[in-house]
Design a protein around this nucleic acid. Structure first.
Lengths: 243, 243
DNA sequence: AACTTCCAGATTGTATACGATTTGCCGGAT
DNA sequence: ATCCGGCAAATCGTATACAATCTGGAAGTT
């Protein structure tokens, strides 16, 4: 309770839009808990309970939950309540397909327009990633890795696509929580470092291909076999039972 | 007042997530008004006023406005209120860049997996587009055109990217309201028909390139010169005055 | 006359109360 | 024992009331 959850303020925000008043704090708190894997996929987010935790009324909680739902972090079922999203393996595949389509393009665009300060900032960011890895701080490492991708998107100057990347990164954290296999724990293989080289050289084509390979490697670290595909609709569920 | 605004129920939904209770109606009503160009960019969406129109309380209106904000249809300024979004020329460019990146890929994916029923549905859709064009029903034509793009995205089977396309299509309607030049009113040049041919042939590569050209043509029908770039931040505005 | 201060109106932010819907249990009927 | 109906608890949906904040103008000062 007295452990203050600190979010490094120099990291790019995961939230796309400003939320009125305290709703932003609730949003950040829940998101942080999800990314830290303290709130696991499928857990119920009762409005009363959340409100009690943050000391706000259900009105505020509902705004925060709606915002989380829009970014795919929570799922809201009318008259049933909100739950931490539990992306299916199919959704997981699609999230990484989307990333593989969008992020290489943004990396290529960024490569041509980075200032020396931008490059230095990215270098320092990678330093912190390495520090977190050596400290075996898994949660921090994942958060920093996501932030790196968002930073690159921001530096591409394409705000619209950057918004999509934010959403995809958040969902990726949920997906990692569900499907990550530690098999190749050193899988990081310094892909981010390789990206830095492309950026330093201002080589757009190289940045694009390095990013594409990187995202494929990330996806290959997941176990996306169809074992637990939940039915997405009542009709589908009934159809399966009847058949 | 007694003019019932009918939304063709067989069109794919523009909304990505279910909204609880009456909030969905408010959302649809406002969105429809925006797409019909009855609510123009920049207009204020007062909570009391909207609530009075739809006969609901501000609680419901706020949920709808927040949802609209998340899809870029409205902008909410804390303690100031909500307004119909007014995308800058820069945002407009980025929206079409995003569409040029995502939609050709989805069209290519769709091309390989369309059933005869899917093809027939698309054909009928194009019929309706032609009918709307001949009836000089500009609003309907634009709505149908957007729905066509969403339908293709849906048929690609990539739900995640389809969500992004929905958002981009809605924003495109705002952009058209702001920047469309009727210069080449027959610009439609049956691009959608050309897409149908690619789909019928199951030619993914062709579908991709036709879609890319189509979106470029759409963008070229806009006047995105920087004439009225509003300052996006107070700092920027002050900087301009001081300089 | 121009500027500043302050107050009234309007509008948003939040809490709370009440109604509607769902869920799960319990008891009775078959 | 199983199944069905119904009641009670919990939870969400909505309205309303009140607090906080912003806006615009009027009054007062220089």
């Amino acid at each position: 309770m007295d452990e203050i959850v600190r979010i490094n303020s120099d990291l790019p925000p995961l939230r796309r839009l400003p939320l009125a008043g305290r709703a932003g704090e609730v949003y950040d708190g829940i998101l942080k808990a999800v990314l830290d894997h303290r709130l696991m996929p499928g857990m119920k987010l009762s409005e009363d309970e959340v409100g009690a935790v943050f000391g706000v009324s259900r009105t505020v909680v509902r705004a925060a939950l709606q915002a989380l739902a829009f970014e795919g972090i929570a799922e809201i079922f009318p008259n049933r309540g909100a739950f931490v999203a539990k992306p299916s393996t199919e959704t997981a595949k699609q999230v990484f397909e989307a990333r593989a389509l969008i992020e290489p393009e943004l990396a290529a665009n960024a490569a041509g327009r980075l200032s020396p300060e931008d490059l230095e900032g990215l270098r320092q960011h990678i330093e912190r990633e390495h520090a977190a890895l050596h400290a075996e701080n898994q949660g921090e490492a994942i958060a920093l890795s996501g932030a790196f991708h968002i930073r690159i998107a921001e530096l591409s100057g394409q705000a619209v696509l950057t918004g999509f990347v934010r959403e995809l990164i958040s969902q990726s954290s949920l997906i990692v929580a569900l499907y990550w296999t530690r098999r190749e724990t050193t899988c990081e293989s310094d892909d981010h470092g390789a990206l830095m080289e492309a950026f330093s050289a201002g080589d757009s084509a190289l940045a694009r291909s390095v990013m594409r390979d990187h995202i494929e490697r990330l996806r290959d670290g997941l176990d996306l076999t169809d074992r637990e595909t939940r039915p997405v609709s009542i009709a589908e569920a009934l159809g399966r039972v009847m058949a």
